[in-house]
């Protein structure tokens, strides 16, 4: 009996030694040098693989920062201390990247751009968009079924009670998932210093635009004449801001906008809980004295 056991043990040990030798040789033969710092840097990164830095994941980003072609500050998810730690570890400049956030180019919520039809299908924006372009009056506007809220990895997007997505500028990492998922292409990733924002994509003009949505850009062109020449241009009935001249922008462009389509945004775009809204029109007599716009 003991011989049988020793034979079995001998075979296993023999096999183990053979494979160990093969593996050891293969390891020598096919060894590839990888900078050990890459793994260490990967450990310091947040590990969300969100793609906001432009790389396919955190490991890939670690490769390019160790490589030196990109500065660690490109990661917008990590905290400032962590970035500083990486920079110190690698002995490079942290590189201050300007914070960027997702901005919505539409301000037409449920109260401004009202439903024209009742929709009974699947409750996602993408699926609503294939049915006659959605049930809202505006063909370009937000559909309000919160695909962006569901897709956001960082829970930065919350729908408010006006069915508009509110982007929390503290937690938004500009990863761009909401840009991809929006069937109406309403999200744009913008540096936070770009405060002048046109919150409309409607290509209609004048009364036609206003009849559909009370906060639409009706192409009156007042913002163009109220700002530094060349900053804003009317293009296809829509105010288009030339962000290369962003330092010249001032809130004056928004002062005479009759609909509020152009806004000077310093924080998040919309209120989390919107104020009492009046679905019957823009002017409502509340009491004898009070008239609210």
């Amino acid at each position: 009996m003991w011989t049988e056991i020793w034979v079995a043990v001998g075979i296993l040990v023999g096999l183990g030694l053979t494979f160990a030798t093969v593996l050891a040789l293969a390891n020598k033969q096919f060894w590839v040098y990888e900078d050990p710092r890459i793994d260490q840097v990967t450990d310091l990164l947040p590990g969300t693989n969100c793609g906001a830095c432009g790389q396919p994941g955190c490991h890939a980003f670690a490769e390019v920062i160790v490589d030196g072609s990109v500065l660690p500050g490109k990661c917008t998810v990590s905290s400032a201390e962590k970035i500083e730690e990486i920079a110190e570890f690698l002995g490079v400049d942290a590189g201050k990247e300007e914070k960027r956030v997702a901005r919505l180019q539409c301000a037409g919520g449920r109260m401004e751009d009202r439903d024209k039809a009742d929709y009974q299908g699947q409750k996602t924006c993408r699926e609503l968009a294939v049915v006659h372009g959605g049930n809202r009056g505006c063909a370009w506007g937000c559909l309000g079924l919160a695909d962006c809220e569901k897709v956001c990895t960082f829970n930065s997007i919350k729908m408010n009670d006006n069915e508009l997505p509110v982007v929390d500028i503290e937690t938004c990492t500009a990863c761009g998932d909401c840009v991809d998922v929006c069937p109406k292409d309403l999200f744009t990733i913008m540096p936070i210093s770009q405060k002048l924002i046109v919150q409309c994509k409607s290509l209609l003009e004048g009364d036609l635009a206003q009849q559909i949505c009370s906060v639409a850009c009706d192409a009156c062109g007042r913002c163009v004449s109220d700002s530094i020449p060349g900053l804003i241009e009317m293009h296809e009935n829509l105010a288009v801001i030339d962000y290369s001249r962003n330092e010249l922008a001032s809130p004056s462009a928004t002062w005479r906008c009759p609909t509020g389509a152009i806004q000077w945004v310093t924080e998040q775009q919309f209120k989390v809980a919107s104020q009492p809204l009046f679905p019957l029109g823009r002017v409502e007599v509340l009491s004898d004295k009070q008239v609210r716009l």
Binding site: V131, H132, G133, G134, A139, W140, L203, L204, E205
Partner: peptide, 11 residues
């Protein structure tokens, strides 16, 4: 000659 509603849902 301007944008108008189309049965497909677009302008």
């Amino acid at each position: 000659v301007e944008l108008a509603e189309h049965p497909g849902g677009k302008m």
